[in-house]
Design a protein around this nucleic acid. Structure first.
Lengths: 283, 283
DNA sequence: CGATTACATTCCACTATATGGAAACTTACC
DNA sequence: GGTAAGTTTCCATATAGTGGAATGTAATCG
């Protein structure tokens, strides 16, 4: 339907240049990201067609190629696609370069211990927020709204909203415009509603979201900024609504803020001490 | 095994079908694997051209596309390519599916503790052996011939040779033929020499290899078999030559054999108890 | 249980996309 | 400052990728 806006070689609003002569790689990566973002349930061909906007035969052919390369695999009983062994192995190879997750371990554990609820560490990746770590507390009713590796458009979850709502106005519009088409997949979300949630979060100074999906659940989110002040990641806590009264929320936010600042301090120190080997250090 | 192979792409003999209409994805994956296999040093464009056999502009264009998709990144001071953040994040998402590494932790630790040397866990992936875990012992002179994530043609290292030399004759020839062109990159290896090393390993019942590269070092390797008896992974130990006399090697092999059997037992148990959700369970 | 629907896969004619030779550009190295 | 090694861009060409349509297959229903 909506033909992909692919001006050859022209930069889009986030400085991400779509190169010419790489259509199929772009498409393959699109499918790969979609699968990576739903890897515990896997995705069917139709799902991937829906998400990607590709034609059925095109998606199918690319998926077949990705399977042949071990980048994904297909469960032959339910036809669903999952990440493949090569992805796992390459992930191991890449681990040492991406240290944010490691650096946050103690913070996350402290939060989980202190609150009893489930904590998430999200990082921004272009228009998405990726969950890269989760720790659950001791409270017996868990709200596992996200699995490690899950990807959602920025602003959909509490963590993503914490990032989005702390960006520059112009970037917020650019992003919300970019992800608009995907929002209806999440609750009855749309661009207008998203922007109003952004505004509310900005006024409040933190994020308080209903957890989309079944049952009652709420989540609070707080951003983590890099040395330039840009929010590039976020902490969030999810719990059942009954544990998310106004007073307790304030307490949770205070804990998140404290640990976020803590992480920012650690990162800044390392940034200074460590030679800048590669472009962006923590993502 | 109906292989309907057109002239494009080489029809290979391992049942891995090269799909039609996916040339560029195949090539992208080739580059991705190469980078994943050398991710601590990174690779330059020329290296990748050399390894892949692609034309320079073709490789360059594909790499640019992969960078744009966050699958790889380029260090702009030395132009080298490394795995990108998406690869790391997807690796996290995939982790829960690939449990071999976890299952082997105790075994590897025991070996490292008992020997004081460096232990490696390798798994077979088509024509390559991938190092998915490493544990170093207490002995102060370390032989880190491999980093986690490194990939080499089957048979090049002790682990890979332990796998290769335990495969069916026909498969050995098929593989050695396939990787022949890549062998000169590793010491002064070639197909003939490789096959003679296979024979020697088969006669000995285990692998004893010189570690290619600088300085003196040797490694012993032993295969891990799945419930069908196929060697799909391997354990190996590397140390300086002076620690690799005949007597000690025999001792090391005994330790490896014991732990390999141990791992095989664990895997078989899980294979039985666990429902076969996805195709191949441990890789 | 045969009909209907949802989803997956294959076919193939067409053309937009990827290709690679050549050349320009940008460092690195005497 | 001149040569070489490596990187990046250009562009005419044909080949690899595309997608509409048809076929195959597995669930769902009346």
């Amino acid at each position: 339907m909506t033909s992909r806006s692919r001006e050859s070689g022209s930069p889009n609003d986030l400085g991400i240049i779509a190169p010419k002569g790489a259509q199929s790689i772009q498409r393959a990566a699109l499918l790969l990201r979609a699968i990576a973002g739903h890897n515990r349930s896997g995705l069917r061909l139709v799902d991937l067609v829906d998400i990607s906007g590709l034609e059925i035969p095109t998606a199918h052919r690319i998926l077949k190629a990705l399977v042949a390369e071990n980048l994904i695999k297909q469960n032959l009983t339910n036809r669903r696609y999952f990440l493949g062994p090569l992805m796992f192995e390459a992930g191991l190879a890449a681990t040492h370069e991406f240290s944010l997750r490691d650096l946050c371990q103690e913070s996350l554990q402290r939060i989980a211990d202190r609150t009893g609820d489930t904590v998430f560490l999200n990082v921004r990746r272009d228009y998405e927020a990726v969950c890269i770590e989760r720790k659950d507390g001791s409270y017996p009713i868990k709200v596992f709204s996200l699995n490690v590796g899950d990807r959602r458009p920025l602003g959909v979850g509490a963590g993503g909203m914490a990032i989005l709502s702390n960006l520059r106005e112009s970037e917020i519009f650019s992003i919300s415009n970019h992800i608009a088409a995907l929002l209806p997949r999440y609750g009855k979300l749309n661009e207008k509603l998203l922007l109003s949630l952004v505004k509310r979060s900005q006024e409040r100074g933190y994020v308080l979201h209903k957890v989309s999906g079944l049952g009652g659940g709420k989540a609070v989110g707080y951003p983590i900024r890099n040395s330039s002040g840009e929010p590039f990641a976020a902490l969030s806590i999810a719990a059942i609504t009954s544990r998310m009264g106004t007073a307790r929320c304030a307490k949770l936010v205070a804990i998140l803020r404290k640990e976020a600042l803590n992480i920012e301090r650690i990162i800044t120190q390392r940034d200074v001490s460590k030679s800048p080997v590669l472009g962006n250090r923590y993502n």
